[in-house]
Design a protein around this nucleic acid. Structure first.
Length: 404
RNA sequence: GUAGGCGUAGUUCAGUUGGUAGAGCACCUGUUUGUGGCACAGGUUGUCGCGGGUUCGAGCCCCGUCGCCUACCCCA
């Protein structure tokens, strides 16, 4: 027997229905916010992710499905969605159309070569949005509001955490300050953090080691070192969230795993799904378009993890629907097909090809969750009629086949 | 990559100091020759993950291996 690869899952029955429900709900709401669909390839040049996500990140460092194709190109299965969308945005020269705004939504599979666990797969699915050309913090707010709308429509509870990561004006000086602080208490920090001081010092902030966290209490805080613009944008964001009654927590240690974020960073978290608790994450990435050789274009975006959300979504239980058609004598089967196609114009129809006793047909109708069981037996065939039973109301009738 | 837990019927699981494997659910048949869900009666279902070792004898003990799950790391 051949099984699916490690960390890759098949979805069927009510699971696949929940999956589709989440996607269609998210699509419906993002369309109301002015987003249109973008489809980009799953396979991209490896360079794209190295430059956008960042070589220091674990995603690029050790989690990529990377290989050489038959034409000797260094390619990679996308580990996240933003890089491809930005690449496409630049390739279509939309970056030259300054003053225009572009809003795209996407969904599809992402791949990371990690050890699977609860809420973490090697192939997983994200729904995401990217908004280009809007530098205003109002857009950051609007995107957060939109995610709130999506979760509300899905009936999901969450905690919203926000932070500001600063910009090229205020981040580098802060980074130096932090490195200085960390170097002083280097001896007491954990092994990982010592490595991080060189590779990605900001990541030390969200180290889970308790000793590191206790040392960090006295560390310089980015929120106290923001430049005027970043500081006023962050204050504005908080005011906007307050005014629209969106609850949030400021988490000064919230660091996004991808290098391209600046200013607003946010994460939606659930405490009901195990240790991988982020159900959506995003933020502003004003420098990424430029960094991938486009004309400077401000942008904000987010992605939500569909599999993680699936555990939180409850579907209404499916009601009986449509018709089940069967015959009791072998020679009458052909009579069912014209009736079936007529009904299928508006209804779900299941046709049983084996002749069966009435009892077996009723059971069959139960099994496919049909509302009506319609059977042609000896008498019905003779009279040109069909026997129908409403399985919910338990009422039965015999009508002419021409009236079916 | 590291650590822990688990692999027995389609499924969920039980299996005593080592003595040739069991239950619920599901499925099929019947009670009812044209009336479903409910009830009752009967029935089908196994490479005990795989390979080796110990033993008269292994689902059980030992070694190896593969797979799944959870956690670390990291992230959606």
């Amino acid at each position: 027997m051949i099984n699916a690869l490690r960390g890759m899952k098949d979805l069927t029955f009510e699971e696949s229905e929940r999956f589709v429900h989440i996607v269609t709900t998210a699509i419906g709401i993002s369309k109301k916010y002015g987003y249109s669909y973008i489809e980009t390839p799953i396979l991209e040049e490896t360079k794209l992710f190295k430059r956008s996500v960042g070589e220091s990140s674990d995603i690029v460092g050790k989690e990529m499905y990377q290989f050489m194709d038959k034409g000797d190109n260094d390619v990679c299965m996308r580990p996240e969605g933003t890089a491809g969308v930005v690449r496409s945005f630049i390739q279509a020269k939309l970056d030259r159309r300054q003053n225009e705004k572009f809003k795209f939504y996407y969904y599809g599979p992402m791949f990371r070569y990690e050890r699977p666990q609860k809420g973490r797969l090697r192939e997983f699915h994200q729904f995401g949005c990217e908004s280009f050309g809007e530098a205003s913090v109002y857009e950051d707010f609007t995107i957060i509001q939109m995610i709130g709308d999506i979760f509300k429509a899905l009936g999901i509870g969450y905690t919203l955490q926000i932070n500001s990561l600063g910009c090229p004006t205020c981040m580098p000086p802060y980074r130096q300050k932090l490195i200085g602080f960390l170097t002083e208490c280097k001896e007491e920090l954990c092994e990982d953090c010592n490595r991080r001081i060189d590779t990605n010092p900001i990541r030390v902030l969200d180290c889970k080691n308790e000793k590191c966290q206790s040392l960090l209490i006295d560390s310089p805080k980015l929120l106290q070192n923001l430049c005027n613009e970043c500081d006023s944008d962050f204050k504005k964001l908080k005011t906007l969230l307050d005014k629209s009654n969106i609850a949030y927590e400021v988490d000064s240690n919230l660091v996004r795993g991808l290098d391209y974020y600046s200013k607003t960073a946010f994460e939606f978290v659930s405490n009901e799904i195990g240790s991988q608790s982020a159900i959506a994450g995003g933020g502003r990435y004003d420098k990424l378009v430029e960094f991938l050789d486009g004309k400077a274009t401000p942008a904000v975006g987010f992605a939500l993890g569909i599999e993680r959300i699936m555990e939180l979504v409850k579907m209404p239980k499916t009601e009986r629907e449509g018709y089940y058609l069967g015959v009791m004598e072998e020679e009458n089967i052909d009579a069912l097909f014209p009736l079936a196609s007529k009904k299928r114009v508006a209804q779900k129809v299941t046709v049983e090809y084996e002749p069966k006793k009435l009892k077996a047909h009723l059971k069959g109708a139960d099994k496919v969750n049909a509302r009506y069981c319609a059977v042609i037996g000896e008498d019905e065939m003779k009279n040109g009629t069909i026997w129908i039973k409403d399985l919910v109301e338990k009422e039965e009738s015999i009508i002419n086949q021409s009236d079916f």
